[in-house]
Design a protein around this nucleic acid. Sequence first.
RNA 1: GCGCCUGUAGCUCAACGGAUAGAGUGCUGGUCUUCGGAACCAGUGAUGGGGGUUCGAUUCCCUCCAGGCGCACCA
Length: 572
Amino acid sequence: MSAWMEAKKEVLKALKTALGKQYAPSVDELETPPEPRFGDFAFPCFALAKGWKKSPVEIAVELVGHIEIKGLIRKVEPRGPYINFFLDTARFGKIVVEQIEQEKTAYGHSVSGADKSVLVEYAQPNTHKEIHVGHLRNFFVGYTTTKLLETVGYRVIPVTYTNDLGMHVAKCLWAMKKFHVKEVDPSKEERSAFLGKVYTEATQASETDPNAKEEISAVFQALESGKRGPFLSLWKKTRKWSIEEIKGVFKELGLIFQAWYYESDFIESSHLLIEDLKHRQVARLSEGATIVDLSEEKLGVNLLVRSDGTLLYNAKDLPLAMRKEEEFHPQRSLYVVDVRQSLAMQQLFATLKRMGFQKELTHLSYDFVTLKEGAMSSRKGNIVRYQDFRDSMVEWAHTETQKRHTDWKQTKMEKVARAVAFSAMRFGMLRQDLSKPIVFDMEEALSFDGFSGPYLLYTYARIQSILRKVERRSLEKRNMSSWKTEQEHQLFVTLASYPHVVFQTAQDFHLDRLAQYLFELCKQFSVFYHEVPVLQAETAEQMADRATLVAVTGQTIKNGLSILGIQTIEEM
RNA sequence: GCGCCUGUAGCUCAACGGAUAGAGUGCUGGUCUUCGGAACCAGUGAUGGGGGUUCGAUUCCCUCCAGGCGCACCA
């Protein structure tokens, strides 16, 4: 049992004794008071008021008289309609420390998902387009979701899906043939930017050129034919450019997948499957296209095949779902996809259901990233490229690091600058509720103060700095009974709630809660840091006890940051 | 037109239906002969409008206003 639960159970037991048989309170009724000075746990008396025909304020006063002070409970007092419980700092601190020291990197783990497997599809960049800051939200949300689910005991299967054969590819190749056929290939560094430029060019040209629609359709049909027709070599070459780039980005962001699916592998199986659906009267022809009519579910029509015979995205998602099932048999399947595709997702799920597919499917939706000027769009070409963003961040972090450590070697400087930059990037995308759009602002992204990744890293680095200075032998003198300040008390309470925060977040995927929690923990540590000296403690025992608290705080920050995909550093 | 989402401090964001609506940033003032100032403290300042449910509403329901997104051949 966690220290947190142990304390709650003890409070509950004391309450039960005081209440006798009149009322059986549950753990869930224990709340956290809005301010630390009100106590550590609160029991609201509203529910009792009805039956007892007294005001909750009176009930609180009356009950407090019957509550025994012992064990972890140091004080109980009524405050308005609440009974507030105060924990004994040293006793509670001891069990918190013992738990964290025992579990170490596993502190926060639980087994609620034990024996269950969940497949998470995320990171679906298209080939022939550039990776931009909008993709980052998907990458980081997806990554953190897999980490979170693993932390609560699921067997997680992360997979990625690349659209290497959609309309965008047809458009891009059409424009290449039309405008760039005689040019030499761009250098390796310029390839993705080149493809991005061609795609933007293609979209604009296709809007003005009256023959474009027909020509692009022909390109697409050729691409979907068995051997990609006359476009085979061009498609292979440009596809490879994109995939190499995507792989590079995944690698530098630490995204690892158990399977990598490509849309081009599902052309044949899509056609076969759709033929079958037509026979089974799940799908039918309409205006020359093939659809699944989902008006019964109020989901409109799921368009699978265009009237020119080429496939739409939703079509290829059907055999993909089958493939995932065959390969992994997951009990749950999660799709991390932005909110604009909510309807398409619901259509996909409904169609799969009609096909007899029974698994639990969830669309983990998040709102997208926009610019102050409005939506980012590859078609318009007004995107913030990932590489440009990353370079700006790293460069800025490098400048800031250099200011502080003129004596550092170049390699160390570079390593730290990257860690700082990536922490800012990830935290910036994860600190806010998924249902809200992120308005991307470079200036804000480059701010490393306050509620930011670097602040958390800085707190951790300071912790390590203290620990380096505390001699090892002094830790042996600890007796785990000298904690008594308000700052120490608050740290213990916050540390103890960590497993609960992780568990909650894995239930409802409000990833920002974890970010908020870690920030709160770091802020509390900063207060402790300024108010309670470790190295200047009064006695060796006190120093050892405080150093112990510092160490377990560091461990918890590290554990939490690792779920967010942020690597800690020892100095910065 | 129909559907989904969002309106909280100057700006960016929090708040299981509960206590005095919290942070970051900005601005003003302060801490420290620094266990690392990417820090800490104080002040400043907000629930789009109107109804309803409830002992209690930022939260739930209705309505209006504002913004975003989706709604058959993009993904």
